[in-house]
Design a protein around this nucleic acid. Structure first.
Lengths: 148, 148
DNA sequence: TTTGGCACTTACCAAAAGGTGCATACTTGT
DNA sequence: ACAAGTATGCACCTTTTGGTAAGTGCCAAA
């Protein structure tokens, strides 16, 4: 994953950059976006971060029920990675029926805040997005028909 | 993918919501974040959007060289999906050695702008992130050793 | 005494995502 | 005449990701 910006073929050159260029050369990553994406890659991670940002420390079971449709295996796994990445903190109360809760670290909180515009964008454009997905689902169903 | 917010077990209740709650019930999606994530799911999509936002209309070959390490198959595929989702526009000049370029639609441009904070976050925290990834790489290598 | 909840773990498996390599039809450069 | 570049398409294969179902040890309620 990397963006190569040393390419003089540029034959268009006049469109004004809608988005300011981010630091071009980071150690190991193309740009900040690249770095961020690696950290939040995982089906439920952004949702977990967002949930934790909204509701503060949350017990495992609650989280499990909150993020619907996720399996234990995957939820645990993604929590572990988030913990290893320094975004969430796991607190084990060492009690007898186990009690554990998860919360955001300052780093995690800052990431969750960076996620807000994405959430806003989605909310503002649900109409377009869900329409497109409805169409996709339609032909997907048609393509798939195996026997009848 | 869904977040269930009707859960009265809440035994913590006091942490102030660091992030304001986004519209809880959207048609088909949990919240805006969920909708957005489905649209940008794909290893290279955010990078493609971001690149296009920075550099304006770009020919296929240029894009291919810019987004390093991507294969033709996948790049084409993701471009098609982005096009189907109304985020990028494909222009075929119908010329004799083929000439095609890709650019953002207004919708795509707005998404790219929502991506900016993620890029910023990544840039500001490369240190933490790359350190973590270095460690991950280390034990991954150790775990894997099959024969020698 | 069986049942259920808690916070996980493990083995196994299916699907999705992505990559490789070859092909196309035409042109330009050597 | 032949290699290379253009923007793709396709068949095939590997890797990654996520899901299922079962089990763990301990305790409380039924």
């Amino acid at each position: 994953m990397s963006i190569d910006r040393s390419d003089p073929i540029s034959s268009r050159a006049q469109t004004p950059p809608a988005v300011q260029r981010c630091t071009p050369t980071l150690p190991g990553f193309t740009c900040g976006l690249d770095a961020t994406l690696r950290v939040i890659a995982g089906k439920w991670k952004p949702l977990i971060l967002y949930f934790l940002a909204q509701d503060g420390p949350t017990r495992y079971g609650e989280l499990r029920r909150a993020v619907r449709d996720v399996s234990d295996k995957v939820l645990i796994q993604q929590l572990k990675e988030l913990e290893a990445d320094g975004l969430v903190k796991r607190t084990d109360y060492k009690e007898v029926p186990p009690r554990v809760d998860y919360s955001l670290t300052p780093l995690g909180r800052s990431l969750a805040e960076a996620l807000v515009p994405l959430c806003t964008w989605g909310t503002e454009h649900v109409a377009e997005v869900s329409q497109v997905f409805a169409e996709r689902a339609t032909w997907t169903r048609r393509e798939r028909q195996p026997t009848g």
